[in-house]
Simulated assay, not measured.
Amino acid sequence: MVCTHRDTIKVENFEPGEKGCEECLKSGDSWVHLRICLTCGHVGCCNQSKNKHATKHFEETGHPVIQSYQPGENWKYCYIDREYLK
């Protein structure tokens, strides 16, 4: 299968204002890994984190493609197609 949502990618060479998961920083929680929404630049925590804010952001907005925001990682994932992008 080939992801059909590449046209939603609007954020490239991103520099988010937050240095961590936006919601966790506000609530004082911690996270495991960070993901960035490639539609709007929202930074959220991964599904291994207790709050799963990256997935919740997708569920609330429908923004389908995220990218790892971890140093040394550059993979992208589409929630709708359940596929890693190359």
Rank of each mutant, 00 (worst) to 15 (best):
L85T: 12
N51H: 11
T39P: 05
G17E: 15
D29H: 13
Q48C: 14
V11Y: 09
T8H: 12
V43F: 05
S68V: 03
T8C: 12
F14T: 01
Q70H: 10
W31S: 05
V65H: 05
R82Y: 08
K10D: 11
Y69M: 11
N47T: 12
F14K: 04
Q67K: 15
G62E: 02
H5A: 07
I66H: 02
H63V: 08
F58G: 08
H42T: 12
C40N: 09
W31V: 04
N13M: 09
T8L: 13
C3E: 06
L38R: 00
V11D: 12
W31I: 03
V65K: 07
D7L: 06
K76D: 00
G72V: 02
H63Q: 04
Q67F: 12
N47Q: 11
R35S: 05
G41L: 08
A54I: 07
T61V: 01
P64F: 09
F14R: 04
P71R: 02
V11N: 10
Y69D: 10
G41T: 10
D29M: 05
T4G: 10
S68K: 06
I80A: 01
P16S: 07
Q67Y: 12
E12R: 14
F14N: 05
E22M: 10
R6K: 15
N74W: 06
Y69W: 15
I66W: 04
P16Y: 04
S30Q: 06
M1W: 00
G72E: 07
V32S: 13
E23G: 03
K56C: 01
E12W: 13
T8A: 11
H42V: 09
E12K: 14
F58N: 09
G17C: 08
F14S: 13
R6C: 10
H42R: 14
E12D: 15
S30Y: 06
V2E: 12
G28M: 12
S30D: 10
L38D: 01
P64H: 03
S68F: 03
E60P: 00
Q67R: 15
E12H: 13
H33C: 06
T61E: 01
P64G: 03
Y79A: 00
P64Y: 08
H53P: 02
E12F: 14
C37F: 03
H57G: 11
H63R: 05
C45T: 01
E15Y: 12
Q48F: 15
H5C: 07
T8D: 11
C24L: 08
E18V: 14
I80E: 00
R6Q: 15
H53C: 08
G28V: 13
T39R: 00
I36Q: 02
V32D: 13
E18A: 14
H57F: 11
Y77S: 00
P71E: 02
F14L: 07
R82T: 15
E59R: 10
T4Q: 15
L25C: 07
K86D: 14
V11E: 15
S68G: 11
C3H: 06
I66L: 10
P71Y: 01
T4D: 12
S49G: 13
H42G: 02
R35Q: 06
L85M: 13
G17S: 14
P71S: 02
S30R: 09
D81A: 06
L34E: 00
